[in-house]
Structures are given as C-alpha cells and as structure tokens.
C-alpha cells in the first residue's frame, strides 16, 4: 500500500519535472529540474528493488552528468531567445507531425498488453538468493560481454574524436613547462631598478618583464589543419 503510494508520488513528480525540463525558460532551471527527474527515477528503481541501479543513477547522472550540464549552461552564453525563434518558426509543422505521430502511437499502444508472466515478475524482480549487483554483473560481464566491450570501443572512439576535433597542437596555447619553470632564476625575470625618491610612473615609465619565448608562434602554422581550400 505504502509502496504503491510512494510509486505514484515519485512517478508524478518525475513526469512533472521532466516536462519542466523542456518548458522552463531559464536553462539553469531546466538543468535543476533534470536533476530532480533523476532523483525520482532513482527512487522508482529503489522501489523496484534495483538498488544498485538507483545508486548508480544518483552518482553518475546527478553527481557527474547533470553538474557538467550545469557548468556548461552557465559558462556558455547561449542566446535562448534566438533559439526559440527557430522553434516558433517550425512549431506548426512540428506540432502537426507530433500530433499525427502521437495519435498513431496511441493507436498502436492501445493493443499493448502485459505478458502473462509480467504480473508475477513485477513483484519478484530478483532471482532469490542472488545479489542485485551480482546479477547485474552477470548480465554485463557474461551475457552481454560483447556489448560491454563494444561500448568500450564506442567510448574510445568518442574520446579520440573529442581530442582530434578540439585539441590544438602545442604552440597554440600556453602550457606549463615544469623544467623551464624550475630552470628559471630571478635574474631572468627581475630587474632591479633604482627609482629616485618622489619619481612617479611618469618618469620611470612602465617596465615590462623580460619575456623569453623560445618557441616561435609561427610554428603553429605548419601544423594548422587548414583543410582544402
């Protein structure tokens, strides 16, 4: 009874916050609603007896992904008003398609029925005696091992892609060069200047530190990825 009640509470909050994610005007609010959605989903997992998944959802999605989103949204200066312009322009077409698709899906889903064994499965989601985590582990590392490996490759490719597309060669940016830092002495950078008492900036002028730039910036041009012209 309490479980049912809790299910409906969490489910309702989840749906509401999910719709708020797409409809909130302020993107920061959207992300916050997204976090709320994740929390509720985790709660639903808990109710279903999948405590491992619930924890993972909180740790990974809330702890990492959503926070990352939040950072990105806050750091990027996205003009949402401009984005919405396009949204409004395509609204009529989009809405029509959406409605038609929705109607069709309703027609389709009308024929849906639970599998006969689903009712019993629903209340005993775990095989008795086998730990939840162990079961997931078996699925991941034995049954779907191939997919696990392949997903690893997908991530690897994503990583390579991110590096290839964004990482600039050395020379484009400033990096820490520890050996150079250590080799540096005060004499290289500091100049002792005798300043007459009372003489202001007007007399001395602004003194710049000596800049030792061993690598010419021009080297960057060789490695630029100009593409074809």
């Amino acid at each position: 009874m309490i479980a049912t009640l809790a299910f409906y509470v969490f489910a309702v909050i989840l749906l509401v916050s999910a719709s708020m994610v797409v409809s909130a005007r302020n993107p920061v609010h959207s992300v916050l609603f997204l976090i709320l959605t994740f929390f509720n989903a985790a709660a639903l997992f808990l109710l279903a007896g999948a405590e491992f998944l619930a924890m993972i959802l909180v740790i990974v999605y809330v702890g990492a992904v959503a926070v990352l989103f939040l950072f990105v949204v806050m750091m990027l200066d996205v003009n949402f008003a401009q984005l919405r312009e396009g949204f409004q322009r395509y609204l009529p077409v989009g809405a029509t398609i959406g409605v038609v698709l929705l109607v069709e899906l309703f027609m389709v889903l009308g024929g849906w029925k639970f599998a006969p064994e689903a009712a019993s499965l629903r209340f005993a989601p775990v095989t008795p005696g086998v730990h939840n985590t162990a079961q997931l582990g078996r699925l991941l590392y034995t049954d779907y091992f191939l997919l696990f490996q392949a997903s690893g490759l997908v991530l690897l490719v994503a990583m390579i892609g991110a590096i290839v597309l964004t990482l600039r060669d050395k020379g484009d940016g400033r990096r820490q060069d520890i050996s150079r830092q250590l080799a540096r002495t005060a004499a290289d950078t500091l100049v002792m200047v005798d300043v007459a008492t009372g003489a202001g900036m007007k007399d001395v002028g602004i003194l710049r530190p000596k800049v030792a730039e061993p690598e010419p910036v021009a080297a960057a041009h060789d490695h630029g990825h100009g593409g074809h012209h």
Binding site: G94, V100, L101
Partner: peptide
C-alpha cells in the same frame, strides 16, 4: 530533420 520525421510519419501511416 523535419523531412526525416515527415517521411517516418508517412511510412507509419
């Protein structure tokens, strides 16, 4: 994207 979706809806219909 819309032409893809229209195509899809058309096929489903």
């Amino acid at each position: 994207a819309f032409s893809m979706l229209i195509g899809l809806v058309f096929l489903v219909s």
